[in-house]
Amino acid sequence: MKQHIGIVSVGVLLLAGLVAPLATGAGTPGFYTEVLLGGLMAGVLYSLVALGIVLIFKASGVFNFAQGAMVLFAALSVARMAEAMPLWAAALLGMGIMVLVAIVIERLVLRPLVNQDGVVLLMATLGVSYFMDGFGQTVWGSDIYSIELGIAKEPVMILEGVFQGGILINKDDVAAALVAALLVALLALFFQKTSTGRALRAVADDHQAAQSIGIPLNRIWVIVWSVAGVVALVAGMVWGAKLGVQFSISQVALKALPVVILGGFTSVPGAIIGGLIIGVGEKMAEVFLAPVLVKTFDLAGGGIENWFAYVLALLFLLVRPQGLFGEKLIDRV
C-alpha cells in the first residue's frame, strides 16, 4: 500500500509538472507544444540507447556500461565510411562491424568471466566502454563528423490553423521518431514470434535450464550483443545526423542510466516510455521550471537539464526500485 502512495504521488507530481506551464500561462499553447515535441525527440534518442542496455541486461544479466560507447563507435564508423561510399552501404557495413564487435566482446570478455559477480561484469563493460571511446578515435579520428540522411534540415511550420503562429518541427526529427518506432516493432516481432526470440527470453529467465534444452549460451550472447550493436548503430546515426558525430555522444548516452532505472532494467516498453518521460521532463523543467526557480530563489539558473533526469531516477529508486515495468524481485528467505 505504501508503495502505491509513493508511485502515485510521483505520477501526480509529473503530471502536475506537465500541465502547470499551460495552466499558469507560462507559455502559449503553440510554444508549449514545441517544447513538448522537442522533449519527445530527445527522449527517442535516450530510449534507443536504453533499449540496447535493456536487451543485454535481459539476456545476460550484465549492465552494459559500454552502450554509449557503442553508439559513438557505430556513429563514427558510419560517418567516416559514408565519406567513401553511399550511406546505405556504410550503414550495412557498420552493422557488420557491430556484429564483429559483439563476437569479440563475447569471446574476450563475457566467456572468460562467465559466472562471475555482476560487479565484475559491470567493471568489465566499463573497461570496454573506455576502450571503445578511445579506439574509435584511434581508427576514425577525433574531429566532429556529420551524417547526412538526405532529409531537408529546415523546419516546417504545421498546425498554423490550430495555434497562433503554428508549430515548428524538423523533418529529420519526425524521421528519427519513425525509425525508432519501426525498430521497436521489429524487435517485438523478433522476441515474440521467432524461435530465436523465444530462446533469448528463455536465457534471460534461466541460463541453466536454457542450456539443458539445447540453447547454446555463447551464441545467444553474440546474438543479443549484435542486436544491441545494431540498435546502437541506429541511435548513433539518428543522433549524429541531428547533432554531429562527436565524443560527447558517449557522455550524453549516460542519460540512459536514469531511463532504465525509471522504466525498469528488464522492460523494453519501459526503456521507451522511460526515455520519453526523461526527455520531456528535462526539457519542460529547463524551459518552464528554471525561470520560476531563478525568480523565487534568486539563482543563476540554467543547467536543470543536466541534473533533472538523475533526480527523477533517485525519486524512483525510493518509491519503486524495480522501475515502472521492471520485474519485482522477491527473494525467498
Binding site: 523465444r198 527470453r201 528463455a202 534471460a204 529467465d205 534461466d206 541453466q208 535450464a209 520485474e327
Partner: peptide
C-alpha cells in the same frame, strides 16, 4: 530439482 522454469513466460 529446484525448478528452473522460464517464470515470465
Amino acid at each position: 530439482q529446484n525448478l528452473a522454469l522460464f517464470k515470465g513466460m
